[in-house]
Design a protein around this nucleic acid. Structure first.
Length: 302
RNA sequence: GGGGGUGCGCCGGAGUGGGAGAGCCGGGCCAGACUGUAAAUCUGGUGCUUCUAGCUGAAUAGGUUCGAAUCCUAUCACCCCCA
């Protein structure tokens, strides 16, 4: 059987992943899987810088508009979905493209996540409720008692981490750490990483310009339509949260716009931190197509 | 032109008014963590150095004093009032 390759195009927001991915998909006559935790939602378009409709039609594109903001979605579901897509795709082609900025989704697909049982939302909510009433310190002590091993390594100041671990413990009766094997999954394909980056100030200029463009394209109106659902997980998103603050009079329109730009820059920063740690290797300027394609072809073994 | 006030580390604020604090709060920025919320969530740093410590420092230049961000003089900048 011939080797299969997944070209992973990753990088901070606004760096130019999508256009490179489309270009590459045309070149290799293949399709794209989006690794983006917000573009999966049908109802969010402008604020997530989703590929345009015509872009989505030029090449096969998966995991965009896949679910509703009312659906439960997470990295585990993404992993499963993406593996299915690749399995079908590699029946016909040898190369596929993964493109996105959600580092954890990329890692899940390329290296796999340890298997965890599904935790009912009710369990999580109940622990969250305990957090609300008893506070962080209570959860810390609880976890320390139930799973001292994980407690030693977890960021115990982070409520999300504690709530997740305690949910698993309560639902399964086993420690959280007992599920952590930390072994890379073996995949029937090889990943070729194309990490995009460019000087920080250029990237920040692009981010600011793109936010202005989103506003021209009607971000405010899109946010207004989604406002009734502002409590949903999917709507805890840069570009929407700030608009909601504006709608509720907590800031002026101008302040909200500046906050969106700032928070997007910070988001990009966090992405860069993640990629630096989990995806070392060469970095490419998004327009340096020659270097990028020779890197890919070297990876494929041409 | 005359009188008064204010001036500190990237920015804003509070505070102190002879025994320093590279101190406090907020912001910005930088850096980091992160195995099912990941565009989320969380942490740290932010004068310099050889970094468990040391050095420089309170607009600028002088002065008084054992000791000055604090008092005095001059200059500069900004603000207010009167012309």
């Amino acid at each position: 059987m011939k080797s299969k390759f997944l070209i992973v195009i990753a990088g901070p927001t606004a760096v130019g992943k999508t256009s490179l991915a489309i270009l590459s998909a045309k070149k290799y006559e293949t399709g794209i899987i989006s690794a983006d935790s917000r573009q999966v939602y049908r109802e969010m378009t402008i604020g997530t810088a989703k590929p345009t409709k015509s872009e989505q039609e030029t090449v096969p594109m998966h995991c965009v508009n896949l679910v509703s903001i009312h659906d439960e979605y997470n990295v585990g579901l993404f992993e499963k979905e993406a593996l299915d897509i690749l399995k079908a795709a590699f029946e016909k082609v040898d190369i596929y493209i993964l493109c996105g900025g959600t580092g954890m989704y990329i890692k899940a697909l390329c290296e796999g996540l340890d298997l965890f049982p599904d935790i009912p939302e009710k369990v999580r909510q109940s622990i969250h409720q305990t957090y609300e009433t008893e506070g962080l310190e209570y959860l810390r002590q609880w976890l320390q008692k139930e799973d001292p091993g994980y407690y030693a390594s977890v960021d115990s100041m982070n409520p999300h981490r504690l709530i997740r671990a305690l949910s698993v413990i309560r639902h399964t009766g086993q420690t959280f750490s007992s599920f952590l094997k930390g072994k890379k999954a073996s995949r029937p394909f090889k990943c070729i990483y194309v990490m995009l980056d460019q000087p920080r100030d250029t990237l920040y200029d692009k981010i600011n310009a793109r936010v202005d463009l989103m506003l021209e394209n009607g971000l405010e109106n899109e946010a207004r339509n989604l406002y009734p659902h502002k409590h949903l997980k999917a709507l805890q998103t840069v570009g929407y949260s700030e608009m909601f603050d504006y709608f509720e009079g907590r800031m002026s329109f101008e302040e909200a716009v500046n906050e969106i730009k700032k928070n997007t820059r910070r988001y990009a920063k966090r992405q860069l931190t993640w990629f630096r740690k989990y995806m070392p290797g060469p970095r490419f300027h998004p327009e340096d197509h020659d270097s990028i394609h020779s890197h890919i072809e070297k990876g494929i073994g041409l």
